[in-house]
Simulated scan of single mutants.
Amino acid sequence: MQRLKLFLPLAVFVLLAGFLFVGLFLDKENLPSPLLDEPFPAFSLVTLKGPDKPVTEQALKGEIALVNVWATWCISCRAEHPWLLKIADQGIPVYGVNYKDNPEDARRWLKELGDPYRFSVMDEKGRLGLDLGVYGAPETYLIDARGVIRYKHVGVVDGRVWQDILKPRVEMLREEEAGQ
């Protein structure tokens, strides 16, 4: 019995090391969202461009679109910004959620780097982000024409993500809607 007690710390260590080792190989970009196939959360927020009249989630309905959570303090957001411009130039509606940011900094950012967003709401307190289950910026949601979240991407949208993940899903949704 005494010898068994000596091996107990070793057994605990091996067990914990095993869990950590398995965690190294998990897909870090595939973070499930409880909002998949649920309507985009209700909100009433003003846009960065004004006027001060708030927009709601109803403004997202009518066509397949991307909703991008971004901020000027987010280094990764700067890296993905050129791709959002390209996606918008391809006719894909892109809406923004400016997350926990200074509105003046955000307006300056869009003026300097270009504005891919049909509109970008100011989520200064992060309540919409909380309702979306945002882990941090950037995050991008694919919504269908009814405003239902169909996919969530955590991290930078770049050429690979657009071509291999988001664009095929957009095309699939278009086919589904055309078939209805």
Rank of each mutant, 00 (worst) to 15 (best):
M1W: 13
K5S: 11
L6G: 14
L6R: 15
L6H: 14
L10S: 10
A11N: 09
V12E: 07
V14E: 03
V14S: 06
L15A: 15
L15P: 07
L20G: 11
F21G: 13
V22I: 14
V22W: 14
G23N: 10
L24R: 15
F25V: 08
L26F: 13
D27E: 08
P32F: 01
P32Y: 02
P32H: 02
S33L: 07
S33H: 04
L36G: 01
D37T: 12
D37H: 14
D37G: 08
P41A: 03
P41W: 09
A42I: 12
A42Y: 14
S44R: 11
V46I: 14
T47R: 04
L48G: 02
L48V: 01
G50S: 01
D52S: 13
D52R: 15
P54M: 02
V55R: 10
T56I: 04
E57T: 08
Q58H: 13
A59F: 09
L60I: 02
K61A: 06
E63P: 05
E63T: 10
E63C: 09
I64F: 05
I64V: 04
L66R: 09
L66A: 10
V67Q: 05
N68D: 06
V69N: 05
W73R: 10
I75E: 12
I75A: 15
S76V: 12
C77P: 01
R78G: 11
R78F: 13
H81C: 02
P82Q: 00
K86H: 07
I87E: 01
I87Q: 00
A88I: 03
D89K: 14
Q90W: 10
G91L: 05
I92Q: 09
I92N: 05
I92D: 00
Y95M: 06
V97I: 15
K100S: 02
D101G: 08
P103T: 04
E104A: 15
E104D: 14
R107F: 06
W109H: 08
W109F: 10
W109Y: 10
W109R: 08
L110V: 09
E112L: 13
L113G: 11
F119P: 00
F119E: 00
V121H: 02
D123N: 02
E124C: 03
G129L: 04
L130D: 11
L132V: 03
L132D: 04
G133N: 02
V134R: 07
V134I: 05
Y135M: 11
G136C: 04
A137C: 05
P138R: 07
T140Q: 05
L142W: 06
D144S: 12
D144G: 08
D144E: 09
A145F: 10
A145G: 09
R146F: 11
G147E: 01
V148G: 03
I149H: 03
K152H: 11
H153V: 08
G155K: 10
V157C: 00
D158K: 09
D158Q: 08
R160W: 15
R160E: 15
V161N: 06
W162H: 05
Q163M: 11
Q163Y: 04
Q163P: 11
I165A: 13
K167L: 12
K167N: 07
P168C: 05
R169W: 10
V170N: 03
E171Y: 08
M172P: 12
E175M: 12
Q180N: 15
